[in-house]
């Protein structure tokens, strides 16, 4: 018996087959990475809830969005209507109170992790966001975006000043320190129906 020659497998169509598979996956794939504004909700209200501690007027900033999507900000009992674009600067000034004004949040000495040590920060400030049931989600989202943006801007400035690099390039510990320096306090009230 002589050696039989094994015929080579004709593989010229593998390319076509894999092309078809490739096109299938190209079509079904969704490359979009999900992005979003991360928010932490407060714990559920308890049954026997005590009255919340009274917040001094200078420590509270009330952002009110009505059913016509108009924004009103009240700082130190002084309401004014503003546009979304103005909100970030206002919030930054309120949170940081750089000039230690009497009608902006008081500064309290707080022990922070290294390298900050004891610092005077506006520990007791609260930003309160109130919406109406008919407010549009878009406006609400833009407001939230600006408020979180104000915190992020301040932390970034702080990180640049202290560590010499932007916030997102800092190490975990440094970021945590920055976060504690400007602690995010945004409280959301139940929306009301003003027209009832």
């Amino acid at each position: 018996m002589g050696k039989r020659k094994v015929p080579g497998l004709n593989a010229s169509s593998t390319a076509d087959i894999s092309f078809i598979l490739l096109i299938f996956f190209l079509v079904t794939t969704s490359m979009d990475t999900d992005r979003g504004l991360a928010v932490r909700l407060p714990n559920p209200p308890e049954e026997n809830q005590q009255d919340p501690p009274k917040i001094r007027e200078r420590n509270s900033m009330i952002v009110n969005v009505n059913m016509n999507n108009q924004i009103m900000v009240t700082i130190a009992k002084e309401p004014r209507e503003i546009q979304v674009s103005e909100l970030r600067e206002l919030a930054k000034e309120f949170i940081a109170n750089p000039e230690d004004k009497a009608d902006l949040p008081e500064k309290v000495a707080v022990e922070l992790p290294a390298p900050f040590g004891v610092q005077m920060i506006t520990k007791n400030h609260v930003i309160s966001l109130q919406t109406d049931r008919a407010t549009s989600y878009d406006t609400y989202f833009q407001v939230e975006n600006e408020l979180y943006g104000a915190y992020n801007d301040l932390r970034d400035e702080l990180a640049r000043k202290t560590f010499g690099r932007p916030y997102r390039e800092c190490t975990e510990d440094e970021q945590l320190a920055c976060r504690q320096y400007y602690k995010c306090v945004i409280s959301e009230a139940e929306p009301r129906k003003y027209n009832q």
Binding site: L41, N43, P44, A134, T135
Partner: peptide, 26 residues
Amino acid sequence: ETQMGIITDVKMELREAMALSIVYSA
């Protein structure tokens, strides 16, 4: 375009269910 009413109801339920970490997709 959604109105906040329904969203608040959802958030309230999420709080009750202790799903506190949420992300507004954007």
